[in-house]
Simulated scan of single mutants.
Amino acid sequence: MLNIAVLVSGGGTNLQALIDAQKAGKIPGGRITLVVSSREDAYALTRAEQAGIRTEVLRRRSFSEQDDYDTELIGLLEREHIGLIVLAGFMTIISPRVIERYRNRMINIHPSLIPAFCGEGCYGLRVHQAALKKGVRVTGATVHFVNEVCDGGPIILQKAVEVLPGDTPETLQRRVMEQAEWKLLPKAVALFCAGFLEVENGVVKIKGDLPCSE
């Protein structure tokens, strides 16, 4: 059984999607054993506690040097024997040292069809504001492995979502969450835990599928 750590900063809706999937038996090869928050007031911590999952708060500003923060984070993950890290709205920069340590064992969810509307400074409602400003007819979400380029790692799964007339950033954000993010992230985690994901020359190969998979 693979131990999973979820890193969060806010409300934790994607964390909840993972918790729900785990309870439904949809992640048979793994279990969430740790939730790490960059903020002590993140509601995601409450979600984790209600599910009986261990929580930790690790604030970057509590450390004078990035290397000290990295050492603490890596130490925490290693003590918990973490095999997969999931970034679910985590707003602290992940350093190259941590990325290298967990190469192709760290995944992120982004609310657009990468490479559109992604990269440094493009997160949260900003992504949906940019999509509406551009006038795209379709947006969506992407799950990808994390590398040193912001939102630039190998893509695991994507799902398209229609942009509707009259959409606001808020309504579009909610639709992307419901129709894409909350479905893609648990599936990507389950695929990883089943050993079905392989990265070859920067491209993810999916070597199998899950029972009752969409």
Rank of each mutant, 00 (worst) to 15 (best):
M1V: 08
N3F: 00
V6I: 09
G10A: 11
G12L: 02
T13D: 13
N14W: 07
L15W: 03
Q16S: 13
A17S: 14
I19E: 01
I19F: 02
D20K: 14
A24V: 04
R31E: 12
S37D: 11
R39M: 02
R39F: 05
T46H: 13
Q50G: 15
Q50D: 13
Q50M: 14
Q50N: 15
G52Y: 09
I53A: 03
V57C: 10
L58G: 14
L58T: 13
R61T: 11
S62C: 11
S62K: 13
E65M: 14
I74C: 02
L77M: 12
R79N: 12
G83V: 06
L84M: 13
I85Q: 03
L87K: 03
G89L: 06
F90H: 06
I93H: 11
V98P: 00
I99D: 01
R101T: 13
R105Y: 07
M106W: 03
M106R: 05
I107P: 00
I107N: 00
I107E: 00
L113S: 03
P115W: 13
A116N: 11
F117P: 01
C118H: 04
G121F: 09
C122R: 12
C122D: 10
Q129E: 15
A130R: 09
A130Y: 01
L132Y: 02
G135D: 07
V138I: 15
G140V: 03
G140C: 06
T142Q: 09
F145Q: 10
V149E: 14
C150I: 07
D151W: 03
G153E: 10
G153L: 07
P154T: 03
P154C: 09
L157E: 05
Q158M: 15
Q158E: 10
Q158D: 06
V161Q: 00
V163P: 00
P169E: 10
E170S: 11
L172P: 04
R175N: 12
V176C: 04
E178T: 15
Q179L: 08
E181T: 12
E181G: 08
L184I: 07
A188W: 00
L191H: 01
N201G: 10
K205P: 05
K207W: 06
D209A: 12
L210G: 00
P211L: 04
S213V: 05
E214P: 15
